[in-house]
Design a protein around this nucleic acid. Structure first.
Lengths: 342, 342
DNA sequence: AAATGGACTGCAATCGATTGCATCAACTGT
DNA sequence: ACAGTTGATGCAATCGATTGCAGTCCATTT
């Protein structure tokens, strides 16, 4: 690779002019510029990204902390992040924390050594260790999903989970369901709470009982959906309709219900959350909430970039509306359910 | 953030000793080391990653070029890559080329400016533009899947596609199938060719005809699987068994076949390729080939690291065996197929 | 006691850019 | 014709590390 010196010698200019030609062309006279460009062309010179980064103190990189690469919802988020980052000439460092706090912390600490200019955080924990907390105060960060640490100032991009599950609940109530179950991803998170609250807000006004023991689950996985279906259907009052807090959970639940001899939706209705690609193609196609995943990723980058540029944060929470309730075939009337008759 | 100077002043040492304490501790006397460490602790100092990278010329980053973030198979690969990279203290720059050569080229060129030390390439094209080709010769690179440019020296990690589809074909033949269709991802690629050859090697020895017009498709997507099923079932001699070259394709095909009134596997058997998580949970559960995706990612990193460290390449192609033929419920006997009778 | 050698440590150059300041030429206005 | 601008360029310091070389100190050898 040609060095800057060679280019400069060939073009008959100083390194200062070389640098200006590339970064602030308007400061350089046109024919000088052309000389420089043709010298660059001839030598195949590329400015060393690392060197300019040391000097400017910006790595033009954002770090994405993701708990796993299985949940298809994260992929749509990452896709959005990637697109938006590219728009800003930023690169994306993908960090799979595997839900491990130590690993998460290790990655997050990399921002403290200029490895990245900011963090987009998809996990529902706090990525910095206590010892780094003080230092972390200056690291631009935005969370997607929910915010854990109230004592720490960073913005969050979230979905209007309350409204989304309200829509789902209204949908199921309109079919005449009165016995509900719910399979959660992570329990005791704000997301889960908001979603349960959304459901309750509908059921209460309909005087339908929905108690905590009808909430099972604990992971956003297919396997969790299977186990959740087993638990719910074996309870004293098995539900005729099941809210699944992700499409993966719903896929597992439907699979298990069929395995157990229940028809979906004739005996049990199942609704999901996320709208992953596969959910339109399972049997029956899944009724679900379409999340604006790509847009959430894009917004996260925008907010982060504005932090990186040093702007004050305008809003601490940004709540996006859900896109749509997709009514497909996994939900329907409860009148002929063998479960209800039992 | 504390600077190196402060740490040095506090510890009463030079920056040289600071650096050595962190990078080559064995060169520093123990009590000096301790003084340095406690000064680091006190100040919260972190060495600037960018600065050390300029000096060493290594960015400790590998770039992963991926055509999309939809195909779940890529995710397992990326997972493996990430794990292995972390093992080597390397970070992963995720670059979504979206199948666009311009975008791909733009990313690849970043290695030329020390943005990354090497490339792992999951697309089936050649990431560098012709003008960069000369420069690219020195960039460590490894491809996963297949190699496109014969004139360019870089290693490939591939699956034994031939053996895999042979296993699938033997499986289907043992059920008595004689009329086959195939829905490909990208046609005219080495992968597709090898897979078709594997099938042919079985069918020829059974004297079963399998002509090119029974090969449809063109993308590794669910939608392509749907369209492929339509095309195949509307042909003059519709097949009783369909090879799908990815699980996503198979999911689309099965969905479509059911839509068209065919039973799977009673009328038409469908087999997939990849073993993504969802494929065990669709109806019917998919017979498929389990690819060692994680391991392929890991191997790719190992080979790349050895290139980065300057070792000569030992093998140009590394062919991994497939893990398993998972016989599930989407494939079965052809005797009662309405398709065969028609 | 002098010489040898090994273990530590510091000085200062270096990596490859960016950028404030100085310089110089050309142009403007009076 | 001359002072004052303006525009374009170069000089050299700087970013924050790493590292070759040289110097110091102390223990060992003869």
């Amino acid at each position: 690779m040609a060095t800057a010196q060679e280019v400069c010698r060939l073009a008959g200019v100083s390194t200062a002019t070389l640098s200006r030609t590339l970064r602030n062309p308007e400061l350089v006279k046109e024919d000088t510029r052309n000389k420089v460009f043709s010298a660059i062309e001839k030598t195949g010179y590329r400015p060393n990204f690392l060197a300019s980064s040391v000097k400017t103190g910006k790595s033009n990189t954002i770090m994405v902390l993701v708990p796993n690469l299985i949940n298809p919802f994260f992929l749509r988020l990452i896709h959005g992040i990637e697109d938006a980052a590219k728009e800003h000439s930023y690169s994306v460092l993908l960090c799979n924390t595997q839900g491990d706090p130590a690993r998460e912390n290790e990655y997050a600490a990399m921002t403290l050594s200029n490895r990245a200019d900011g963090i987009i955080h998809l996990d529902h924990s706090f990525p910095f260790s206590d010892s780094d907390k003080g230092l972390a105060e200056k690291v631009p960060m935005v969370s997607i999903g929910e915010k854990i640490r109230a004592d720490f100032d960073y913005p969050v991009i979230e979905l209007d989970n309350f409204a989304a599950t309200r829509a789902l609940a209204l949908h199921l109530v309109s079919y005449g369901h009165t016995r509900f179950g719910l399979i959660a991803g992570k329990k005791n998170t704000r997301i889960s709470q908001d979603r349960v609250d959304g459901i309750q807000s509908v059921l209460r006004s309909e005087n339908i009982d929905f108690s905590d023991d009808m909430i099972v689950g604990g992971a956003y996985t297919i396997e969790c959906g299977q186990q959740g279906a087993i638990d719910l259907m074996n309870s004293k009052t098995p539900p005729t309709a099941i809210f699944c807090l992700s499409d993966d959970i719903a896929i597992g639940a439907i699979h298990q219900l069929k395995q157990m001899g229940f028809r979906v939706p004739e005996d049990v209705s199942v609704v999901g959350f996320d709208n992953i690609t596969a959910s339109a193609f399972i049997d029956p196609p899944l009724t679900t909430i379409d999340q604006p995943a790509h847009e959430m990723g894009v917004r996260a980058v925008q907010v982060l970039m504005s932090q990186i540029k040093g702007n004050a944060l305008k809003r601490q929470r940004e709540v996006l509306p859900f896109l749509d309730l997709l009514e497909r075939k996994s939900s329907g009337s409860a009148v002929n359910s063998v479960v209800a008759k039992a």
